[in-house]
Every structure is written in C-alpha cells, then in structure tokens.
Computed example of a mutant assay.
Amino acid sequence: MKKRLLVTALLLSACSQLPSERNAAPAEAIIAPTQIVPQQAEEDVVANSTTAEAVATDFEHIFVDADMTFSGTLPCADCPGIAYHINLFRDGRFEARQEYLERNQVSIVKGIWLLEKRSLHLVNQQQTLPAFHFVSNNQLAMLDLGGKPISANPQYQLQREAEFKKLDTRQAMLGLYMLSNNQATFTSCRSGDTLSVANTQHHLPVMRQYQQDERFSGNAVIATLVGRRGQDEQAGTLFIDKFEQFWPGAICPDHVQPGKMQGIVWRAEKLTDRYVPQQLNVRVIFDQNERLYGFAGCNNFNGNYKQRSNQLTVQPLVSTRKFCADSSDLEQQFTKSLQSADRAEVNGDKLQLFKNNQLILQFKPAVN
C-alpha cells in the first residue's frame, strides 16, 4: 500500500514540472495541434455579416458591381405620376424609361452614370433626369433641389428589382412614313431620326394600306403608331407593335406656322374644364379642303367644316360604331362639343374652340 501511494505521488509531481530541454521538441509537437481552435472561422463569419456591411456603409461607399434595375413612380406636378424604369450597367452606362402617366408620353434616355459616394447622377446631354441617393443597395431616394435625399417620403423612392429587367422601349410615335420598293422609312417628328422599318407581321398591313391609297403614291405621309427602336446593331431599325392611322395632309408640328390651324394633328387636352386622359389619343385634323377627321378615343370620325376668319362651323360627323367602356362617355361629350363650336383661335401652341364665348375644347399639337 505504501509503495502504491509513493508511485502516485511521484507521478503527480512529474506533471507539475517543466519539461527538460531534451524533451522540449516532442512536447511542442503534442501541444501544437491544440492551438488550432475555431476562433479563425468565427472571424470569417463576422467579416461577411450584416454588422461588417454596416461598418462599410458608414464610410458612405456604394459599389455598382452588377447590372441593376430600379423602378417606381415619382410625383408629377401636373399628372398622376412619372413611372421610371432605370437600368444601371456595371460598365458605367445607364438607360431609363420615363413615362408621364395619362399623357401618353414616354421618353427613352441613355447615357452614363456618375457615383459620388452615395449620390447617383444620370448624365445625358439632351435631357435632364433626377439625381438620386443610395439609401441602400436596394433603394434610391430622389435628391431635392438642395441636393439632399428625400428619404423620409416613400413616394420619392425607387426600389431595386430582384432580377435585372430589360428595358421596354415601346412608345407612341408620330412621324413621316414613306414606302419605296417594299422598303419603308419612318422619320420621327420629335427627334428627326430616320429609321428603316422592319418587315414584320405588324408592318405588312401598313404597307398594304399605303399602296392602296392613291393620294400617297410614293410620298411621305404622317402616321401615328406604337413602336420600338432596335438595340445595338439594329439601332437604326423601327419595329412596329401597333399601327394607328395615316394623316394625309398633315405636317410635323415643328413646321407649324404661327396661328395656323390646318394641317396639324391636334391632340385634345381639355374638354371644358376637364383634362382628357392622354392615353385615349383623342385627336383631330382640319385639312385644307374643309374636311376634318380624327379619333375620339374609341371610334374614328370624319366630316366637313367651314372657317371664315375665326368663325367655325362643323357639320354633323360620321363615325364608326364601336363601344368602349372606358371612353364612350367622354367620346360622346367630345364629338358633341366639336360639332357645337362656333369659333376657333390658335393661341401660341394651343388650338381653342369656343361656343358663345365659352371655352369648350382645347388642343395641343400631337408629337406622338
């Protein structure tokens, strides 16, 4: 028993002693593996965590390292809103679709983006777009006139889409269409660009209608349509999605003579004191031969008119007989007012029709 206690004591005392130099190397070989603990793995997790990203954001750095799409509707002073679709490309380019709701006005703008800390500027030489502030990688807030982000009001913010979305470049257009040897061109009245028209299924009916009308016979004629410009190598090509109509005798509004009423495609802007929704495309033209025709939001119409100085008389109109639930009531009021007008004045770029000295219809030159 005493021998067993003595051996135990000797073993315990050996554990408390430092290893001799002769045994140092083996001891380190045994201890070294115990130094590899999961602390380094914890540090990797922290580096990619939300906390670490928040620290980086404190330095006000935003990186556009992938193609991004932001969309939303911003307030508008004289319309229900402006719908935006903005694509930011990581190579420094941007493209934006800007649609004024109820005006049927769409702009496609391209250029370069500049990023100053978290302020985003969309640069285009012809058109000015709002500047924005990156609230986060997923949210843009518009800058006010003082250059400060309107981050407290969600109405002034655009949200990032979960996936990058190709821009919808379709828009309403008005321009000169001409067909020669089955090759058509379209010159936009707004931009002045001349595009070749792709021979798609939507273009074939346009070609037939042009060829069957003896008034055209190889001449350029104003046409209204919904189309889109091609991308990249097809940038000079127009793809027609929907053809509306030809306007014989009309000219581009840029060529309008001051005070002239004839030969202009006029878009209805106000009916008495009520604004006409622009997406209805209510339009009329008074030609040189005392004929008028147009589109009332649902049906096409035509008729005769007489003008002596500012005095105007519109004969009963002939119209197609389709029913459209969203426009038929307004259409009836429009055609009734048009036929009751007794005076016409062109003031600036506005055509105003009166009855008993009361304004009943107001138009502006159509550019699309």
Results as ranks from 00 to 15, higher is better:
1 M>D: 14
7 V>H: 06
8 T>Q: 11
10 L>D: 06
13 S>T: 13
17 Q>V: 11
19 P>G: 06
20 S>R: 01
22 R>C: 04
23 N>F: 09
27 A>C: 07
29 A>Q: 14
30 I>N: 04
31 I>P: 00
32 A>S: 12
40 Q>A: 14
42 E>C: 05
44 D>V: 06
51 T>C: 08
52 A>E: 14
54 A>P: 02
57 T>Q: 14
60 E>K: 15
65 D>R: 13
65 D>E: 14
65 D>T: 15
69 T>K: 01
71 S>H: 07
74 L>C: 04
78 D>S: 12
81 G>V: 03
83 A>F: 11
85 H>K: 12
89 F>A: 04
89 F>C: 01
97 R>T: 02
102 E>V: 08
103 R>H: 12
106 V>M: 04
110 K>T: 14
110 K>D: 12
113 W>N: 01
113 W>Q: 00
118 R>M: 05
121 H>Y: 15
122 L>R: 11
122 L>H: 10
125 Q>I: 11
129 L>N: 03
129 L>R: 11
134 F>N: 01
134 F>C: 01
142 M>F: 07
150 I>R: 03
153 N>D: 15
156 Y>V: 02
162 A>V: 06
174 L>G: 00
175 G>K: 01
176 L>Q: 05
181 N>S: 09
182 N>W: 02
187 T>K: 03
194 T>V: 06
195 L>S: 07
198 A>C: 03
198 A>R: 01
199 N>T: 06
206 V>W: 09
206 V>L: 15
208 R>W: 08
208 R>E: 14
213 D>C: 07
218 G>S: 06
223 A>F: 10
228 R>H: 04
229 R>A: 01
240 I>V: 15
246 F>Q: 00
246 F>M: 02
264 I>L: 09
266 W>L: 04
277 P>F: 01
279 Q>R: 09
279 Q>L: 04
280 L>Y: 04
281 N>G: 06
291 R>M: 05
292 L>F: 10
294 G>V: 09
296 A>P: 02
297 G>P: 06
302 N>T: 02
308 R>M: 09
311 Q>K: 12
313 T>L: 11
314 V>G: 00
316 P>W: 08
319 S>V: 09
320 T>P: 06
320 T>R: 10
321 R>A: 08
325 A>E: 11
329 D>W: 00
332 Q>S: 11
336 K>V: 05
336 K>A: 14
337 S>F: 09
342 D>T: 13
344 A>P: 05
347 N>H: 05
348 G>C: 05
348 G>R: 02
359 L>K: 00
363 F>W: 09
364 K>G: 12
368 N>M: 07
368 N>L: 08
368 N>P: 03
